Simulated assay, not measured.
Amino acid sequence: MAPSAEDIHDKLAPSILSADFARLGEEIRAVERAGADMIHFDVMDGHFVPNISIGIPVMESVRKVTRLPIDAHLMISEPARYVEAFVKAGANSISVHCEVCPDIPAMARRIHDLGARASIGINPETDADKVLPFAEHLDMSLVMSVHPGFGGQEFIPAALDKLRYIRRELKRRGLSIDVEIDGGVKLDNIADVKAAGANVFVSGSGIFGKPDYGKIMNEMRELVVHTPSKL
Rank of each mutant, 00 (worst) to 15 (best):
G55I: 01
D113K: 15
R109V: 01
I177M: 01
P157R: 10
V225D: 11
R23P: 04
M1N: 11
L163V: 01
S15W: 11
L24Q: 10
E180H: 08
S229W: 10
G197R: 01
G214E: 14
E222V: 04
I216A: 12
M144Q: 08
L138Q: 04
G184I: 04
V43K: 07
N51R: 01
P124T: 11
S119N: 15
E99W: 01
F155E: 02
V58K: 00
G149P: 09
H112P: 07
Y213E: 03
E169D: 12
R23Y: 14
A159L: 04
K88F: 08
A191M: 04
E60N: 07
I28D: 02
A195D: 05
E6P: 10
N51L: 02
G214R: 12
G149S: 11
M107I: 04
L187K: 10
R23F: 14
A89Q: 09
V224M: 10
S95T: 15
E26H: 08
E169T: 07
E180D: 06
P57L: 08
F134I: 00
A196I: 03
S4H: 14
I122Q: 02
A128G: 12
D113A: 14
S205L: 12
E125G: 13
I111L: 03
L187M: 05
V31T: 10
K194N: 09
D178W: 05
I8F: 04
S15F: 09
V225N: 15
L68D: 01
D71I: 06
P228K: 12
G149N: 11
M220D: 03
R173E: 00
V58G: 01
E154T: 13
I76H: 08
K88M: 13
H97C: 04
A106I: 02
S93R: 14
S176V: 00
M220R: 03
C98Q: 07
L132Q: 03
S119F: 09
I216Q: 06
L187H: 13
Q153C: 11
P50M: 04
P228L: 05
L74R: 13
M140W: 02
H9G: 13
R29M: 12
S61N: 09
G25D: 09
R172W: 01
A198R: 05
P69D: 04
K194I: 07
E6G: 04
V65Q: 05
I70H: 06
V179C: 00
L138S: 05
F155H: 09
K210D: 13
I8C: 06
L231T: 00
D42T: 11
A128R: 07
S229G: 15
V58I: 14
